[in-house]
């Protein structure tokens, strides 16, 4: 294992996330109760996804500037891990919403289905799924790299309105949006408790580093495959 210092950092931060995340004090809130600790897991998945997508689009731009095939492999691998993290974020969100919105707040299924944050996140994930469909539909490697690099930029730009902007403009059950008068104190960064921050920020870095680690493995597998193909 070369360049292993950040892999050790990832393990240390994740151990701290789980130990500190379960054992340290959290503010007492109605409806959320102990499930407030999901902040260290559910929210971190989304943030890791966004960071990985950001790295992916950076490599796509790099590919378009330099036309080096390895940048295309990097971009695809980072987008893949980011998409996986996003799916985990969505899946964990469904469980959390089931016990805070449906059970405790008594929201109907109709309100949940109209929830702009869920729709936006679903759209963003589908756009990235289309990125991989597009990748699979090319036989020419150079053409695939060029077209999907351009598409990746489009997909990343679409992330901003669908996840960040629209759920903040319209009312939403999800924390961090206006009109959130459902008794749930919005867990946005303005009133995020300081005792949660000391676990939350390391948790983001830890989960992101784990995502990067898995991505580097995927990149190395792809390089090995391509070498085998060329021989």
């Amino acid at each position: 294992m070369h360049k292993s210092w950040w892999k050790i950092a990832a393990v240390v931060l994740l151990v701290y996330t789980i130990a500190g995340g379960f054992l340290m004090n959290v503010p007492r809130r109605f409806i959320l109760n102990e499930s407030i600790r999901n902040l260290y897991f559910h929210v971190c998945m989304w943030l890791a996804m966004m960071i990985l997508f950001g790295v992916s689009v950076a490599y796509s731009i790099k590919y378009l500037r330099t036309q080096q095939y390895k940048h295309d492999i990097y971009a695809a691998a980072f987008a893949g891990t980011g998409l996986f993290m996003g799916l985990l974020g969505y899946a964990t969100g469904t469980i959390w919403a089931n016990y805070t919105w449906v059970t405790d707040q008594g929201q109907s299924l109709g309100t949940i289905l109209k929830e702009p944050k869920l729709l936006g996140a679903g759209i963003a994930i589908l756009i990235y799924c289309a990125y991989f469909v597009l990748r699979g539909s090319f036989t020419d490697i150079d053409k695939r790299a060029r077209v999907t690099a351009v598409y990746n930029i489009f997909a990343f730009v679409m992330l901003f309105p669908s996840i960040w902007i629209i759920p903040r403009l319209v009312g939403s059950l999800h924390p961090g949006s206006p009109g959130n008068d459902s008794g749930n104190p919005a867990l946005n960064f303005n009133d995020l408790d300081s005792q949660m921050r000391i676990v939350f920020y390391p948790a983001i870095i830890g989960w992101t580093l784990l995502g990067v680690w898995i991505t580097t493995l995927k990149i190395r597998i792809q390089f090995l495959k391509d070498k085998a193909m060329l021989q």
Partner: peptide, 26 residues
């Protein structure tokens, strides 16, 4: 906490094993 940490360690060990195998292949 013990259960979650054990799962985490198991996953990390798995990732490390794949990393080592890849290094050998390379």
């Amino acid at each position: 906490v013990a259960v979650c940490l054990l799962i985490l360690f198991g996953l990390i060990a798995y990732v490390i094993r794949i990393d080592r195998k890849l290094s050998k292949l390379e």
